[in-house]
């Protein structure tokens, strides 16, 4: 017996995973089942698309990775699933290793793209800090795969799906004292169609207001490389593009004063059109430009603002 099991704490991600599961299922002839833990609205929503099992157990707090992984292991066993798809958010990634260990499974995380080839699931994921893209396959029967958000479309509603209850036994391993919604910058640069990103080549903090005005004139958002946020603290961490920040696919990205280290480019290389403005014509970033302009930012930024304003 074999099958695919889907779980994410976030409903939108679970809907994307169902699409991925259905793609695999079509090629491999496997049933798709989804689990929802302590989340009634999610279970109802998922059950419009695929057979859904809801777990209602007060001992499971989603912060308790050991408890969640144990619940999913029991679900996989009860439902005869050998492939588990999880979302590549922080919760999903943390569950993945633990669940894989308990199922004696192979595990691939942060998968950007997948396809079935000769009965095996080929997964593309960044490697070497984003310098390369590895095509990898799990060779054992039990597989745990975490998939990046927005790789797949959300699954559409379908009829004839069941909603059932699933009983698992877990023991709580930690106490949650407080949950805080993150305050501050609520920008979502991943959702922006136009991004204006700056790097350390922008030396004058006073230019930032003009960059913000450029972004506003274009109807886009300001983003940055990691050092501009974490070292200079000019912009919030929500605006970091790159390996340890956001992976963005805007239709237009204007990159200014950015040298093009792979830790950054991995987060923007899927943009449709890339404009680079840099004072060094030999900077690595020039290789990924659709439009490249060699200029000093102190001249280019006010000119661009004037031209758009």
């Amino acid at each position: 017996m074999a099958g695919i099991l889907v779980y994410s704490d976030k409903t939108s991600y679970a809907l994307e995973l169902i699409t991925a599961a259905q793609l695999i299922a079509k090629d491999m002839g496997l049933p798709v089942q989804v689990v929802s833990i302590n989340h009634v609205e999610q279970a109802t929503e998922l059950a419009k698309r695929v057979d859904t099992y809801k777990i209602d157990n007060a001992a499971i707090n989603l912060a308790d990775t050991a408890a969640v992984a144990s619940a999913l292991k029991q679900a996989a066993n009860q439902l005869s699933a050998n492939i588990v798809l999880l979302s590549s958010n922080r919760r999903g990634r943390e569950i993945a290793g633990r669940l894989a260990q308990s199922l004696n499974a192979g595990c691939l995380s942060d998968v950007n793209s997948l396809k079935v080839n000769s009965g095996k699931i080929e997964c593309l994921r960044n490697a070497l800090g984003g310098a390369t893209v590895a095509n990898q396959v799990i060779e054992v029967e039990n597989q745990v795969i975490t998939i990046m958000p927005k790789v797949f479309e959300q699954a559409a509603e379908a009829g004839g799906c069941r909603l059932s209850e699933l009983v698992v036994e877990v023991k709580a391993g930690l106490k949650v004292l407080e949950v805080k919604v993150k305050g501050g910058d609520s920008v979502d640069i991943e959702a922006a169609e136009i991004l204006v990103a700056v790097g350390q080549g922008m030396e004058n903090q006073g230019d930032l207001a003009k960059v913000e005005a450029i972004a506003k004139a274009l109807g886009g958002e300001v983003a940055c490389t990691k050092p501009v946020s974490t070292d200079k603290k000019w912009l919030s961490q929500e605006r970091i593009i790159g390996l340890s920040g956001k992976k963005c696919k805007p239709s237009l990205a204007i990159l200014m004063g950015i040298s093009g280290q792979v830790q950054f480019t991995v987060g923007i290389r899927d943009a449709k059109t890339i404009v680079v403005i840099n004072n060094d014509e030999n900077a690595d970033i020039m290789k990924m430009a659709d439009y490249a302009m060699v200029a000093d930012l102190e001249d280019a930024i006010p000119e661009l603002l004037k031209c758009l304003g």
Binding site: T65, A66, A69, R93, E94, I95, A96, G97, R98, A100, Q101, S102, C107, L108, S109, D110, N126, A127, G129, L243
Partner: peptide
């Protein structure tokens, strides 16, 4: 590799 699996596997 950034797979983030090892800590969770060790805990398990």
């Amino acid at each position: 590799n950034y797979s983030g699996q090892v800590a969770s596997r060790v805990a398990e």
